[in-house]
Amino acid sequence: MKLGGRLAVEGAGTAWLVFAGCAATALNASPPSQGCNTLGMAVAFGLALAVANYAAARAASAHFNPAVTIGYAVSGRFPVRDTGPYLAAQTIGAIVGAALLVRVASGRPGFSLAVSDLGSNGYDDHSPTEYALWAVFMLEAAVSFVFVFFHLLMSSRAERRKAAALATGACLAVVYLLAIPVSNGGANPARSTGPALFVGEWALDQLWLFWAAPLSGGAAAGAMYRLVSRRSRLVPAPVREGV
């Protein structure tokens, strides 16, 4: 597929991810308890990613996340020249998804962006459980590293790619189970940008962290994958007796 088609797939997939994932809380007329909110949002994001991956069928590499794209570029498995267009398509898609969510949510009496944060990410007073900036940064970088490294591993061999769509969706759900109480679940700069643009104020002020930490984690995962891949190619295959 040509670049234009791949960018369209990336944008559409990211829009779906943001809409479906953030809708788990934004469309609730009566906010559930923190535990139910965490589980519902994590499952929604995980299933949304799995659906997007299956729908894309590897047509666009199925990144839907700037941290993943950066990780693939650093690992040497994605052309650097396409990195900028991919990040732009993902961010635009996330904004479209958030705009659709705002439009739907505004149909409920009493809805207000001043009350609903649309699942925006934050730290300190805007962390769901008031985690400090440094703690949120460390967690966001760590879970992004794990997710991107797992993404790279699952797409590295043909036999793994058969289960990659479902496996990466499950991995994202686990990541969000960990991250939602701390930061409302980021690990994706595009996903963080969409809601933040509509919430404004504090969400935009704190958005820098949700680009810096995931991109740092994604780049580290790409570098680690590249190192591990090089070393594995230098290790000779074990010799079997009788072969």
Rank of each mutant, 00 (worst) to 15 (best):
R103A: 07
P79H: 06
A50D: 08
P32Y: 11
A98E: 03
A67G: 03
A57D: 15
I92C: 12
A105H: 09
P66H: 10
A24R: 13
I70A: 10
G35N: 15
G76T: 03
G110A: 06
F111L: 03
A98L: 01
A42Q: 04
S30E: 11
A56M: 09
P31Q: 13
V104N: 04
A98H: 02
A24N: 11
A55I: 11
C36G: 08
R108Q: 12
A73W: 12
R77E: 03
T91C: 14
G40R: 12
A50W: 14
N65E: 02
R103N: 08
T69L: 10
T69W: 13
D82E: 05
G110E: 08
V102D: 05
A48N: 13
N28L: 15
M41K: 06
A60I: 07
A55P: 05
V96G: 04
I95M: 14
N28T: 14
G93W: 05
H63A: 10
G110C: 06
R77H: 08
D82F: 02
V102H: 13
I95Q: 15
N37H: 12
A98C: 01
Q90T: 04
V96N: 08
Q90G: 00
F78K: 04
M41T: 05
C22H: 14
S33H: 06
D82L: 02
P79Y: 09
A67T: 06
G21H: 15
R108F: 07
A98Y: 02
A50G: 01
I95T: 10
Y54A: 09
L87I: 09
R58L: 04
R81Q: 12
R103Y: 01
S61H: 14
A62W: 09
A55E: 13
G35A: 15
L39F: 06
Q34Y: 10
R103M: 11
F111Q: 09
A94M: 03
A99R: 01
A88D: 04
L27V: 05
P109G: 06
N65K: 07
V74P: 07
A42D: 00
P66R: 10
A59R: 15
A42N: 01
A73F: 06
Q34A: 08
F111E: 12
G97M: 04
T25M: 14
G93H: 02
T83Q: 13
L101S: 04
P85I: 00
